[in-house]
Amino acid sequence: MLRPTLSVAATGAALLLLSGCVANNPTADAEHTAITVDSSSDACAIDTETAPSGNVRFTVKNSGDQVTEFYLLAGDGLRIVGEVENIGPGISRDLVVQARPGDYYTVCKPGMIGAGIGKAAFTVTDSGHDFEADADLTAQVATANTNYAAYVKDQIAQLVAGTDAFAAAYVAGDDEEARALYAPTRVHWERVETVAESFGDLDPMLDLREADLEEGQEWTGWHAIEKDLWPADAEPGFAAYTPEQRQALAAKLVADTATLNEKVQVLEFTLDMQTNGAIGLMDEVASGKVTGEEEFWSHTDLWDFQANVDGATVLYGGVRDILLAKDADLAATLDTEFAALQTLLDAQRDGDGFRLYTELSPAEIRAFSDQVNALGEPLNQLTATLVLN
């Protein structure tokens, strides 16, 4: 879900306002094209507006004083081809993509909501690049892509079924049943959340938080219903939704989820989409789950946390054999850090679910935050290691 990011190192910081594009010649070699992005308090200076097809590395340096992010969008200006988030002041992070020939856009999104600013055209010319992995790894890559596509379709199918049951309970006024179904159903969304984000406005229609609303924007989706189901933590004077409002919200949630299901049926994946997806899911943990801001009223953040980790683990597992052939040390580090994070999550289990996030101690929250950071650093090397090496 595209939302304001609060990194552990810069909690409370707003995102950079970025704009502008400076043309130049990128640095290129036989392995990839290197492009730099200088992100300051009032500009987004990209050193080229074009690149040859193949492996492209955007190195985004934050020279400002607030957290920022950078996106590469498809030619429709909506679908996310690649993104890099949680770039703190003075920090550089890489976005590595296997860029096919075509028209794209680069954009920065202050607040991680809306259309963003500084949207600029970016062209990938046809270099004749093969896009095939090394011959001995081609079959492994194809298998990993096929298996992940099947996983996504399965998770969304389960989301459809769960959403139908949840919406029926909500419309019928069976709030106890709807509350019981809320977190277990949302895990199917959270496991493949970065895939849903690639479909433009569909993601905010389903998962936008109230704090992220723009002026005049209609609020729909899971969190709009969440507030109505857990009104105790709502603002004073909050009025429960009318039956008509419930019906409208539930109908749209069901319809938008069905649309998502249709879209993923024809979705194909590449190696960089998988690895960047794993990185993106852990960014979701860092930006919302570990801060307790995702489930503002239900406090079921640990269900979401586990689901994001589930999805990242599946993505990593699909490419792990390929990584072993290229960087066994990085694979060992990732194995260790994923296991350590899972151990922390397992300690918070309560029956079939988890403790509420509000029940965690500051020390427990800090332990989660530290371990998310410990995993995030080596995970951010995954795409470059697999695609560029």
Rank of each mutant, 00 (worst) to 15 (best):
I35V: 15
T343C: 05
L72H: 10
A28Y: 00
R209N: 11
G64N: 10
R179H: 04
K109F: 04
V37S: 06
A339P: 03
G111P: 10
D321G: 14
G102K: 02
N55K: 08
L375S: 01
A278H: 00
R191Q: 15
P243S: 12
M282D: 00
T270A: 13
Q342K: 06
T27C: 07
T259S: 07
W219V: 04
D327T: 02
L334D: 00
L315P: 01
L15E: 15
N261R: 00
L315F: 01
Q274D: 11
K227W: 03
A133K: 01
F338S: 02
R246Q: 13
V195T: 07
P26C: 11
L281P: 01
S298M: 05
T106Q: 09
R93Q: 15
D174R: 04
A168K: 12
L360P: 04
T385E: 14
Y148H: 10
P26T: 03
A169K: 07
R186G: 08
P243Y: 10
A133S: 09
S41M: 09
T220Q: 06
N276L: 14
G221F: 05
D370A: 12
Y241T: 13
L137T: 09
P110C: 10
D346Q: 13
C21A: 15
G221P: 05
E197H: 03
D233I: 02
E337T: 04
R186T: 09
A10E: 14
L324K: 08
F305E: 09
A307Q: 09
T143K: 12
A325D: 15
F368R: 03
A43K: 13
Q158D: 14
P89F: 07
R355H: 12
A347S: 15
A384G: 06
K119I: 06
G280I: 04
A307F: 00
V22C: 12
P378N: 01
S63K: 07
V319T: 10
T163C: 14
L345E: 05
G12A: 15
F296G: 05
H223L: 11
A142C: 06
V124G: 04
D201M: 05
D310T: 08
V67W: 00
E244A: 15
A232L: 06
A115K: 11
R3K: 12
A144G: 12
A251Y: 02
A120T: 12
V96Q: 02
A161F: 01
G128I: 02
Q245M: 08
F58C: 08
P26D: 11
T185F: 02
G64K: 05
V372Y: 00
A232K: 10
L229I: 04
L271E: 05
I365F: 02
L208G: 03
T259N: 04
I35Y: 05
V107R: 03
L16I: 13
A286V: 08
D154H: 03
G280A: 11
A142P: 01
S41L: 13
R320V: 13
G111M: 10
E215L: 09
A139I: 02
G88Q: 10
M273R: 11
T138L: 08
V285N: 08
A239I: 14
L181E: 06
